[in-house]
Amino acid sequence: MKDFSELNAIQLDALKEISNIGAGNAATSLSLMLGRKIDMSVPKANIAPFNQIMNYLGGAESEVAGGYMRVDGESPMGILFLIPKDQVYFFIDLIFGQPLGTTQDLNEMHFSALKEIVNILAGSYLNALSAFTQQVYSPSVPALAIDMAGAILGEVLQQIGEFSDYALVIENVFIEQERHISGHFFLLPEPKTLELLLRTLGVL
């Protein structure tokens, strides 16, 4: 396989399926952490050239909080968790068990808490993936940025840019029903990681 653009429907379905398992694990962790029921959407797997990828994210200019972790080694990939800016404060309130609407501004402690959320989500996701592939994933510490979605995703995509003109974005949305708070979880595998995944799944 040379490029993401060559993936077929069966391969995409297989990727969605493992992502579903990974995200299910992550949703359980999130639910335990927040003490609330967390639902999750049917995963989406999109392949698009770089110049179109932003269309899947609700526009490059929308303001988001983005937590980013890199996995190096045998299976390099990027993990990105995006929360729309207007929902970040609610997220913080949930984490700290405060009445919704308490947080009006972000401080260092909030930043740490958001990073920890990303850490736990990515950890549970990767654990599930690991059980499947028998690979050990060692993610970096999370980094956090609050800015335009395009600027944040662009930096993540640069890692893939050296290998491909297309990005494969596997997306899971976590939803807190009561207040409709949603977070978007993205897995961005590099080409060689994708090959390994597909081989393990028996669809390559």
């Binding site: 932003m54 600027a151 662009g154």
Partner: peptide, 9 residues
């Protein structure tokens, strides 16, 4: 000409 969301690009 417009380009949106330039980060490290």
């Amino acid at each position: 000409l417009i380009t949106t969301g330039l980060g490290s690009c």
